[in-house]
Design a binder for these strands. Sequence first.
RNA 1: UGGGGUGUGGCCAAGUGGUUAAGGCAGCGGGUUUUGGUCCCGCCAUCCUAGGUUCGAAUCCUAGCACCCCAGCCA
Length: 561
Amino acid sequence: MSDENKPVVSNFIRTIIDNHNATKRFGGKVHLRFPPEPNGFLHIGHAKSICLNFGLARDYNGKCNLRFDDTNPVKEEDAYVKAIKEDIRWLGFEWDKECYASDYFDTLYEYAVRLVKKGLAYVDDLSSEEIRAYRGTLKEPGKNSPWRDRSVEENLDLLERMKTGEFPDGTKVLRARIDMSSPNMNMRDPVMYRILHARHHRTGDKWCIYPMYDWAHGQSDSIEGVTHSICTLEFEDHRPLYEWFLEKLEIHKPQQIEFARLNLTYTLMSKRKLLKLVNEGIVDGWDDPRMPTIAGMRRRGVTPAALRNFSESVGVAKSNSVVDVAQFDFAIREDLNKTALRAMAVMEPIRLVIEDYPEGKTEWLEGVNNPEDDSAGKRKIPFERELYIERGDFMIDPPKKYFRLAPGREVRLKHAYYVTCTRYETDSEGRVTTVFARHDPATRGGWSDDGRKVKGTLHWVAVNHAVSAEVRLYDHLFNTPNPGEARDDDAFYAILNKESLKILPDVKVEPVIAACAPGTRFQFLRQGYFCADIKEHSTERPVFNRTATLRDSWAKTKKKS
RNA sequence: UGGGGUGUGGCCAAGUGGUUAAGGCAGCGGGUUUUGGUCCCGCCAUCCUAGGUUCGAAUCCUAGCACCCCAGCCA
């Protein structure tokens, strides 16, 4: 794997681990976990976290579990569990143990009893509104609940009865007894259990009380022997609570470490908003190629290596940042340039007739499949009198630096011949319909030994061997660099890029392109990287998704003049 | 003076008192090229501000400023 030979860039988490290893805090062990909640699909932000956790485990000869944080049955589904596992494997990682927070519900309950017995947790009868009111504000301390000083016996009894389902949802909670005047809101007697008569995707109807994140997460880490619990910045304030539970319980205490989540320009990373795109049919499901989900990127044709290299390239730090999506595009191109097969496809075809080439003749010319990789071999390409070329590759009256075809101009047809434009035909509206040219038989294969230079090289497809394919050109879903900043629905709809998908129903492609298996990646010469759609492509009806464009310096010089 | 964080080039990001302040992306200029692709070469910062400590500071101290997070029985 090319991405694993690169030198590792230092980051603050590695420094922390190195220090722990040096001081033997965890006996030299490094044990991580990736803890998704199964309530949606994984996106590129999760990919960064996956690469971080599994990558650290790999580099330190440690372990990394996959743990589903399934503590909220009303939002979680088994289908998401399945999709998440598939995505992680596709990314190229394998977990040591597959765990679920729900595996620990019994232990968690025992732990809760332990805290109650120590006088460190109590059952509160306040409503959620009252709890909020009692919590105080950011600048004012909270007030103790009137139920805060119940006896251990009463708390034990009540907790047991909460568990057995005696009370309706929302009537009671178990709270940690910490400090209602703490400047850290998380320490103001946080809720540990809420009553939820809901069916859980794994434990079924066994439980009607479910642990909150803070009560479940650290203990789960501890039970699994996790040494470094990596999470995102917003949990920084939770660390004191994370540690409080573990210290009061006197069990193994991992080190929580927070890093800044990934943000990308023109990309939405909020699961809630991505769900909205799916639910409202703005995109075609979680795996729509425009989605920043791993499933969407897979379908678009992005490679696992590109995603891994990108994750590595953005680094790990604590400052909020927004990475330019161009950096991701670079990673995609970098990998695909080395691996994608080259072939020719004409997106917007016009006819090119080689006047001096015999009718009915077909030559099978040779083309290299990948100039970056000899082992990719060569293929035969049919050449005939009538070809398709790109509409944009011919101009009646070309500007200064235009290297392509124009009346009287000579260009190279890739892998074929030098041709010189003799004339052209237009329709009643003046649109070019057919271009005529003569070829130089001595340039067969696309090369002349006489030192003659041609500036332009065009891709083409023989009319009688062309296969029609559907090509989907994707662009950013949003037309603003920071779509996450949209404050309300109106703002959200306003920034949607109406041209994020353009379908070309009749692209002319080489036979080899049409014959490929779903998921095959190509570089359509001079245009970009494309991937045969994994759901809809077939030899009968070829369908390609554009993964990325090629860098286009011509577009830049064109813009400048 | 609620608490917790973060500030290094357009975007990421190394740097842990002595380095010409890494590297990548983007941009710009040039070369190579049967893809206006790739590749190659070159250019592109004195580190939020102000003081201070020191022979020497992005790194230490002081005082500011800016931005992010926290008042779910979500995670």
